[in-house]
């Protein structure tokens, strides 16, 4: 019975992240406008004051629930071991790498590497051949559609420069 009651407890730690972040950001925002003209302050003070009041009300509500034993301050399933086993953390790392490298490696090469590594990590290393083909098709397809056909302003790198020289159409 007691175990059952324990299971029913809500974990409020995770739910507090957004309100606490909102309060911290609002206070930081206020520090940047404290010496500004009233036109820069009025709307932000209005919105910020309401946001702090709402967040404070939520924090108080959580405190009451924790105190009454209906909830605890655990993070629930926000961060868990599954983040590592599911490949979520790896995907986050690869995503960061994607943004870091796309500037100089260009869209096509970086997308191919990102898709290959990302899919392989999520698929726990299985089917590298299929994933390599899929990543190549998607990256090259993206190049054909967005850069060659629509001339979209995607980041360009060695591959795009090479193709530009080969095609010679000044893309």
């Amino acid at each position: 019975m007691q175990q059952g009651d324990e299971d029913k407890k809500r974990s409020l730690g995770g739910e507090l992240i957004i309100p606490v972040a909102a309060i911290v950001f609002t206070l930081y925002y206020f520090t940047t406008i404290v010496d500004s003209p009233w036109t820069a302050q009025v709307s932000a003070f209005f919105v910020g004051a309401v946001l702090i009041a709402l967040s404070a009300a939520f924090v108080i509500r959580c405190a009451v629930e924790v105190r009454s034993g209906k909830a605890d301050l655990g993070l629930g399933d926000l961060f868990s071991r599954a983040d590592i086993t599911s490949g979520r953390l790896t995907l986050l790392g690869v995503t960061l790498g994607y943004i870091l490298f796309i500037e100089w490696a260009g869209f096509t090469i970086t997308t191919f590497v990102f898709l290959f590594v990302g899919m392989l990590a999520l698929n726990r290393g299985r089917g590298p051949g299929l994933i390599a083909v899929l990543a190549a098709v998607m990256a090259f397809g993206g190049y054909l559609l967005f850069i060659l056909a629509f001339d979209t302003r995607f980041p360009r790198g060695p591959f795009e420069t090479f193709m530009k020289a080969v095609l010679g159409d000044g893309i």
Binding site: I18, P19, A21, A22, F25, T26, Y29, S43, A44, V47, G48, V50, L51, L54, S55, F58
Partner: peptide
């Protein structure tokens, strides 16, 4: 809270 947090970010 979500809406006003968005408003603050929008500011």
């Amino acid at each position: 809270i979500a809406g006003f947090f968005g408003l603050m970010i929008g500011a």
